[in-house]
Simulated scan of single mutants.
Amino acid sequence: MRPTEILLHPVRLQVVHAFLGGRSLTTADLRRELPEVPAATLYRQVAALVAGGVLETVAERPVRGAVERTYRLAADAPVAVGSEDAQGMSRRDHEQAFLTFALGLVADHDRYVAGEDVDLARDQVGYRRAALHLSDEETARLVADLRAVVAPYRELPPAQGRRRRILATVLLPADPPETVSGCPPSSG
């Protein structure tokens, strides 16, 4: 399944996000995490992700005459849109993808604050914006540096004292080059 097929479908994107961090989940686990998604829709989208090679079955066990499967993200599962995929997307596709991404963050936040043991300071919850003045080369270095900083933490397995946390980033130009006050447009 192409990354754009996942990204442009809000339920599939929510399901994929639930598996991030090396998690293995059953559809019952997913229903508890995504209670706003109707069961039939959830099962249909999980089946589509399995058929598309995004999810793989890691265990099966009989439960009341049925088979309960445990899934995880496939090793080569597309969980982000790369530059090649992004170039093939229309403006409308990008708008839909970003809206789906943003609504997923809102849903994650809502689930957290609806919990019974909410302590934003203890849990180090934060969201902030920063404006940076960067050339294309500096932006590429920033992205590479951020990936290098986050990479070792992504490899940490679930363990006692660890809590799954969501880190989301958005990086986009705030102004077209010709509207940057006091500076001529860059020529390259």
Rank of each mutant, 00 (worst) to 15 (best):
L120T: 10
V15W: 08
A114M: 06
V143S: 04
V113D: 11
V58M: 06
L172Q: 15
V150I: 15
S83N: 07
G65T: 04
D119R: 00
S181N: 02
L142T: 02
G115Q: 02
L120I: 08
V180N: 15
P62T: 14
V46R: 00
G182D: 00
Q14E: 14
V15D: 00
T100Q: 12
D136N: 09
L172C: 09
L7R: 15
C183H: 14
T70S: 10
A148C: 02
E56K: 05
S187E: 12
Y127A: 14
H17W: 15
T4L: 14
L20N: 10
L171R: 12
G188Y: 06
R162F: 13
S186L: 13
Y127R: 13
E36R: 05
E95P: 00
A102E: 07
E178T: 09
R163C: 14
V16H: 10
G52F: 00
S187M: 00
A102Q: 09
A102C: 00
M89V: 09
A66E: 11
P3A: 02
P62Q: 13
V106H: 09
V180P: 06
R72C: 05
R122K: 11
A28Q: 03
L42H: 00
A144R: 12
D136H: 09
E138F: 00
V46I: 06
A80R: 14
H133G: 12
F98S: 07
L7N: 13
S24T: 14
A77D: 03
G161Y: 13
V149L: 11
L146D: 05
R61Y: 02
G104S: 15
T57N: 10
E33R: 13
V150C: 08
V58A: 03
A74Y: 02
A130G: 04
G115R: 02
G82E: 01
R147D: 08
E116W: 01
R165W: 14
A114I: 08
R72N: 05
Y71M: 02
D29V: 04
D93R: 06
A107R: 15
L30H: 11
V125E: 06
D119V: 03
L55Y: 09
D119C: 03
L105Y: 07
D76A: 02
P152T: 05
G88F: 10
M1L: 12
R154W: 01
L8F: 09
L156A: 15
Y127N: 15
S90D: 04
G126H: 04
A77Q: 00
